[in-house]
Design a protein around this nucleic acid. Structure first.
Lengths: 158, 158
DNA sequence: TCTTGACCTGGAGCGCGCTCCAACCTGTAA
DNA sequence: TTACAGGTTGGAGCGCGCTCCAGGTCAAGA
């Protein structure tokens, strides 16, 4: 299997495959007589797992670290397991954050629908109040925030 | 409230606040006699919501579009609702993908623990098999893939 | 033999989202 | 009055993750 075939099967471009090899995410493949890379089908599983790590928020440097450990075989099992456990925690936290956002969006969409229908709604109570006591999305909320009195503006995003 | 206070309360740096203003995410604030930006507390809600949009995967150009719509007030309600509905779908999809990854990680972590304990496990069946029929994380899987026979390697990530 | 297309390498460029810097201005407090 | 913290602007720089390009090699088919 040459790089073009692997590109097609993996969904990555040939440029990306060579780039991944260069930065150590992919092992150096064998070469044919003409110097072209020759891949084993099994590399697809690794690429698949790498893609999953990436798409679930693991950055390049950690994927590099994981790939490096992988080359060490069984000796690195524990270290890899620890990395996976840390990533599991991150994924779990991300799910919680996204789920919270889903609620916020549902409320906002509902509010907008009612406003579009001409209903008179005070958005400060509907939406912002929740934004206040809901998950704070990483902002440094201060307990003693004294927000100016609720609801003089008619804009839900405020 | 000046930019330093807002930075502290919002969790963004003063540089980022000015950058957000420059690219249109934040409205141009009033200035005091000395030309310094003066903010109303209500801006915090907008920054909070922007941060949530960002942390749930909405890129700058869409946030710019949304911010632009917001400046148009009630006239843009429907357009904003549609954007939020689209984002809701994306968030929902992301939750599904992350949840799938959680399962993959749990299985892998479990497998590694057993391997660390010296158990003889053929990883091709435990792990790769699932990777095969599970969610494919965006890779262009081919139905007619003929992977080389399962389980000659002892490396779970393969 | 000649063409064609897939491959090779090294390095430049790019979009995102900031982050930092130089050089300057302002208002308060000792 | 002088020091100093905290503002202002424009513009450069940066880390990530590719993506593209120039200039060349290689091998199979007409």
């Amino acid at each position: 299997m040459r790089i073009g075939d692997l590109a097609e099967k993996s969904g990555l471009s040939t440029d990306t495959l060579r780039y991944y090899e260069k930065i150590g995410l992919l092992p150096k493949p064998l070469r044919d007589a003409g110097g072209r890379r020759v891949y084993d089908e099994t590399i697809l599983r690794w690429i698949d797992f790498l893609a999953r790590l990436k798409s679930t928020g693991m950055g390049i440097s950690k994927r590099q670290r994981y790939a490096e450990l992988r080359t060490k075989g069984a000796a690195s099992l524990k270290a890899r397991r620890i990395m996976l456990e840390e990533h599991r925690q991150k994924v779990s936290d991300d799910i919680a954050a996204l789920t919270g956002m889903l609620t916020v969006l549902d409320e906002k969409i509902d509010l907008y629908k009612r406003m579009e229908a001409g209903e008179t709604v005070d958005p400060a109570f509907e939406n912002c109040a929740r934004t206040e006591h809901g998950a704070r999305s990483g902002l440094k909320g201060r307990t003693d925030d004294k927000r100016t009195g609720a609801g003089s503006r008619a804009d839900p995003e405020t």
